[in-house]
């Protein structure tokens, strides 16, 4: 692996770490899922792949912070499963994080779309 690849990977890990909470809250938006379902959903997307060892303790923390709720449900003969959903606080947090995320994407897209050498119009200042 050349050093550039290692740097890219590091950046990807950082990005994933920073957006993981948003990804989980977004996945649970108006949806009730149990751990395995949530894991499979996140693993099906290229930038949100995580392991069991990351997901379950994170869900535990979100529950302690009262951003999600959980209850055990047993349907028919199946094994009891612990289902998660957003609380009102969690939904509020999701709105807030979504706003920040979109702002960040807009800003970076703006920079990418406007290469030099011309000076940029700085509307925000």
């Amino acid at each position: 692996m050349n050093p550039n690849d290692a740097l890219m990977e590091k950046w990807e890990v950082q990005l994933r770490k920073g957006t993981l909470e948003l990804a989980i809250l977004a996945a649970l938006q108006q949806r009730t899922l149990y751990g395995l379902e949530l894991l499979k959903l996140l693993q099906s997307l290229p930038s949100t792949t995580i392991t069991e060892g990351t997901l379950y303790p994170l869900l535990d923390r979100l529950k302690r912070d009262e951003l999600v709720d959980a209850q055990w449900v047993q349907e028919g003969d199946s094994r009891p499963r612990k289902y998660y959903q957003l609380t009102a606080t969690g939904a509020q947090k999701l709105t807030e994080l979504t706003r920040l995320w979109r702002q960040s994407v807009t800003d970076i897209e703006f920079l990418l779309a406007n290469p030099g050498p011309q000076a940029l119009p700085m509307t925000g200042v």
Binding site: G35, L36, E52, Y56, D60, R79, P80, R81, K82
Partner: peptide, 13 residues
């Protein structure tokens, strides 16, 4: 609670 959840996951998979 933690053990039960992981156990449920393992047997499910």
């Amino acid at each position: 609670e933690v053990i039960r959840e992981i156990e449920s996951h393992l047997f499910d998979v």
